[in-house]
Design a protein around this nucleic acid. Structure first.
Length: 285
DNA sequence: CTTGGGACCTGGCTGC
DNA sequence: TGCAGCCAGGTCCCAA
């Protein structure tokens, strides 16, 4: 699942190959991948456009163009962007030909990925929460954001309007590192817990970027290689395995219909749990 | 207004 | 062996 570290890796590895190049031809094989604008218009507007910059915001990959327009991609669950792949892929949705002869190929097994052409990226992504790796992101900002919500902390971390870029895997890893139960109510964290969670979020994301992302499911890097962040996961996708700290089996609980993996001993229940969610989750088991 | 849950989608896995 | 049904999850949308 491309979350912040995966999209950051895609951006870093593509940047030297695409910035300064122009789109010479665009082939859309699955018209559903283009949103808000007819495919014909999308291709027509993009053809000949020069890429002047490549950025990431949250889980979005942003192509800044020489014109005022901006190409935005979102990979959702199974989208990948490959540079000059050798093999054809059944799930190719779009192919971008560049002026240096390279091909950017957008593959997406589950067809949830989207791309858009917008006038102003700041308007389009205005609701996104702060970037957790920005210097301007502080424990005080995290506290202020979480205090507005009476929902499970896990659900708050997944809400892109609260914080941008965190998905299911890294939310579980951050909560484990901070020793916070996924069903804790977001607005009940102590000052110490906010501090722990703040540092856990940043360390988990930075560590994953150093490992070039996590190749669970279909994610691979633009050159076709895997990322290795998932080798170091402590709880994510590890239900039933022993906790690396205390050997207690990792448990799974549903929070907002999403699997959450946690250690019941290292992330203990407290009186500030979201009881309704917990009961519903337990009933489902 | 906030919160919760289903829909979307497809391939892999489980269990009968 | 075959196949129905479940599961994975980011985001949107609707209902309570």
């Amino acid at each position: 699942m491309p979350e912040l570290p995966e999209v950051e890796t895609i951006k870093n590895e593509l940047l030297p190959w695409v910035v300064g190049q122009s789109f010479t031809q665009i082939n859309i094989l699955d018209s559903d991948v283009v949103h808000e604008i007819p495919v014909e218009a999308f291709c027509h507007k993009l053809r000949g456009q020069r890429i002047v910059g490549l950025e990431r915001r949250g889980k979005y990959l942003i192509f800044n163009l020489a014109s005022s327009e901006v190409l935005i991609m979102h990979f959702r669950m199974t989208g990948v962007l490959l540079l000059n792949p050798n093999e054809m892929d059944l799930h190719t949705r779009a192919v971008f030909h560049l002026s240096n002869g390279s091909r950017l190929v957008f593959n997406d097994q589950r067809r949830f990925g989207v791309m858009r052409l917008v006038q102003d990226v700041n308007t389009t992504l205005a609701k996104l929460g702060p970037e957790p790796l920005d210097e301007s992101f502080t424990p005080a900002i995290l506290r202020e954001r979480l205090n507005k919500h009476r929902i499970p902390i896990k659900a708050a971390l997944l809400d892109q309007d609260v914080i941008a870029g965190i998905g299911n895997m890294y939310a579980d890893e951050a909560l484990f590192a901070a020793h916070i139960h996924p069903l804790r109510r977001a607005d009940t964290l102590s000052g110490g817990e906010i501090q722990s969670l703040y540092h856990a979020i940043r360390e988990v994301l930075l560590s994953a970027i150093r490992s070039k992302g996590a190749s669970v499911d279909t994610y691979i890097r633009p050159d076709g290689q895997i990322g290795t962040a998932h080798f170091y996961f402590k709880v994510a996708h590890r239900g039933g395995e022993p906790c690396p700290l205390c050997d207690t089996p990792i448990e799974r609980v549903l929070v907002r219909n999403r699997s959450s993996y946690f250690c019941p001993k290292c992330q203990p229940l407290t009186s500030q749990i979201c009881f309704t969610s917990l009961l519903r989750a337990q009933n489902d088991k």
